[in-house]
């Protein structure tokens, strides 16, 4: 025992060796951090992968001047806000339903969660077909009810919103299980006390469930907001940013510029997305966590 303590004290043979960090640090440093730092320089260049000529802020100026690039910026924020908002509301409602005493609760929980695990591209293709303006099952179903369905993905003012809906369909299961975990952790005493005081179900929800599941809300918002800002695969599978540039986001612009060989501009898009996430997500998490602390 003495030798163990001694060898720990002089640090050469700590049981928790610092070099355990090393392999992870090397992989992460080389393949994630280095490109991230390099992106700040290359975003200021006209770049062919072999040659980079410094052009200052020209890429960024272009990013904020070209209407379709600005559109992508606005769409990205809109998409993140819409999807995370809907995931909070629908996720909470589903969680309430799935923590109450209903038939087939286990099966339904599984059904709601399963889309989270399915290929995004597969989901995107499936819904692209279901949303076909004339032949798609959604509009066929609506016409049975006497409603003329819109061109979900062909109407420029609707396309981004339709993709966001599919994003919610695929991702709401995660929000739901996070809310279920939060709701289940609320002590039963509160509901018991409320019952004695004659509280209604709605009051229970408003004064007990909603405030006490705030940590879950914070998690859902943070996760889906970051996910929404970075989203690429679903948009690419469904609209490729179209019609026109109507549903482009920064991530799809990055890919398009990369495909066209504008590597400097593409990297500038990366930096813009990076700044956007930092500027939006850091304050949001700070606010959410501060309120949590006051509970």
């Amino acid at each position: 025992m003495v030798t163990a303590i001694a060898s720990t004290a002089n640090g050469r043979r700590s049981p928790y060796p610092g070099w355990f960090f090393l392999p992870a640090a090397i992989v992460y440093g080389v393949f994630f951090l280095m490109p991230t730092f390099a992106s700040f320089y290359f975003s200021l260049t006209r770049w062919s992968l072999f040659e980079a000529s410094f052009i200052g802020l020209e890429n960024f100026i272009q990013f904020f001047r070209e209407p379709f690039l600005v559109k992508g910026l606005v769409n990205t924020v809109l998409y993140a806000a819409v999807t995370s908002g809907m995931k909070v509301v629908i996720g909470l409602l589903l969680a309430l339903m799935l923590t109450s005493q209903i038939m087939g609760r286990g099966l339904l929980r599984a059904l709601v969660f399963f889309p989270v695990l399915v290929s995004t591209i597969g989901v995107g293709i499936t819904f692209t077909v279901l949303m076909h303006p004339t032949k798609g099952a959604i509009n066929e179903g609506l016409s049975l009810l006497g409603i003329a369905g819109p061109g979900w993905l062909t109407d420029p003012s609707l396309a981004l919103f339709s993709v966001a809906l599919v994003d919610v369909w695929k991702g709401v299961g995660l929000a739901t299980v996070i809310y279920i975990a939060g709701i289940v952790a609320i002590p039963k005493d509160y509901y018991e006390a409320a019952r004695i005081d004659g509280g209604t179900k709605f009051q229970n929800f408003l004064y007990i469930t909603l405030p006490l599941s705030r940590p879950a809300t914070a998690t859902v918002i943070t996760l889906s907001f970051i996910g929404g800002l970075r989203t690429f695969d679903l948009i690419w599978a469904m609209t490729k940013g179209g019609p026109g540039f109507a549903s482009d986001t920064i991530a799809s612009v990055i890919y398009k510029q990369y495909q066209s060989g504008f590597f400097g501009l593409s990297t500038a898009g990366n930096v813009v997305l990076f700044i956007l996430i930092a500027v939006l997500v850091v304050p949001i998490t700070a606010v959410l966590n501060r309120r949590e602390g006051h509970q």
Binding site: M34, T36, F42, W47, I226, I254, F274
Partner: peptide, 9 residues
């Protein structure tokens, strides 16, 4: 949080 920098990678 940070989106990977694609082209530099």
């Amino acid at each position: 949080m940070i989106p990977p920098a694609v082209v530099p990678t």
